[in-house]
């Protein structure tokens, strides 16, 4: 079937403003949007820039707006989006070229929530043990691949560059609710302001955009609850 791609192009070295260009590509309905984009880059227009690495929904490189909604191009089938596919870069990040955006701010927010295990207790002879129940407490947020689809779907993040965004809160959640971690107080302190968890307005765009099916809004709400309750029982429940 013939699929018409309408792609937002922008080359800062040549273009004054972004513009849309159309490309017709022959694809199967079981092909992915990424297959079409690769076809365009490899056989039609070599100047078209996009970012992708593993192409199997794990590396998080190819998050983009497909028909108005953030998705991973490598996990979106043509049959799910139809014969007219509009592709644009993620919004809220500066565009480097075409679909390639500068994610520096995204990763700065990610680093700000201390996304690593903090535990100064002497390490045991073997691994730090955890019960299956304790592990299940934060299982959902371990699935994040840092693609940025949630943060760039969030109106609060669009409006305020200082807001850490859903992805950073998801990463904080992954450690706050980890029974082996001892850095929760510091993380919660960093998330307690309006640039932290309270910047979230419970809009659910993040949950809808997440290509990994993470219940993002729920995770943020759990962090908010922890901020109010503040007790460790709350975190381990």
């Amino acid at each position: 079937m013939k699929v018409r791609f309408d792609i937002k192009r922008y080359n800062p070295e040549v273009d004054e403003h972004p513009h849309f260009e159309k490309y017709d590509v022959e694809l199967e309905e079981t092909d992915r949007v990424l297959d079409g984009l690769n076809e365009i880059r490899w056989r039609i227009d070599g100047t078209f820039a996009l970012r992708r690495s593993c192409e199997h929904g794990i590396c998080g490189s190819d998050a983009m707006r497909i028909n108005g909604t953030n998705r991973l191009a490598c996990k979106t089938l043509i049959k799910d989006v139809g014969e007219d596919v509009r592709v644009e870069p993620l919004i809220g990040f500066p565009v480097v070229k075409d679909l390639v955006v500068d994610q520096e701010r995204f990763f700065a927010h990610y680093r700000s929530v201390l996304p690593f295990l903090i535990n100064d207790e002497p390490p045991p002879a073997r691994e730090r043990l955890q019960s299956p129940k304790e592990r299940a407490r934060f299982d959902d947020t371990t699935k994040c691949i840092l693609c940025g689809a949630c943060t760039t779907a969030c109106p609060s993040a669009w409006a305020d560059e200082k807001f850490v965004g859903p992805a950073a809160i998801v990463q904080a959640h992954r450690f706050i609710f980890d029974s082996r971690d001892r850095g929760s107080a510091e993380r919660l302190a960093r998330l307690s302001g309006r640039n932290g968890a309270w910047g979230c307005r419970t809009i659910f765009n993040c949950t809808r955009a997440c290509p990994r099916g993470i219940e993002v809004t729920k995770a943020i709400a759990e962090v908010k609850r922890s901020l109010i309750m503040g007790s460790s029982e709350e975190r381990s429940s």
Binding site: Y10, P12, G68, I91, P94
Partner: peptide, 20 residues
């Protein structure tokens, strides 16, 4: 690079759900 500011129009064009 173009700036990362999201215009009101661009924000409205994003296809969120009912909650948005």
């Amino acid at each position: 690079m173009t700036g990362g500011r999201v215009t009101f129009r661009e924000g409205l064009r994003y296809r969120g759900g009912l909650n948005m």
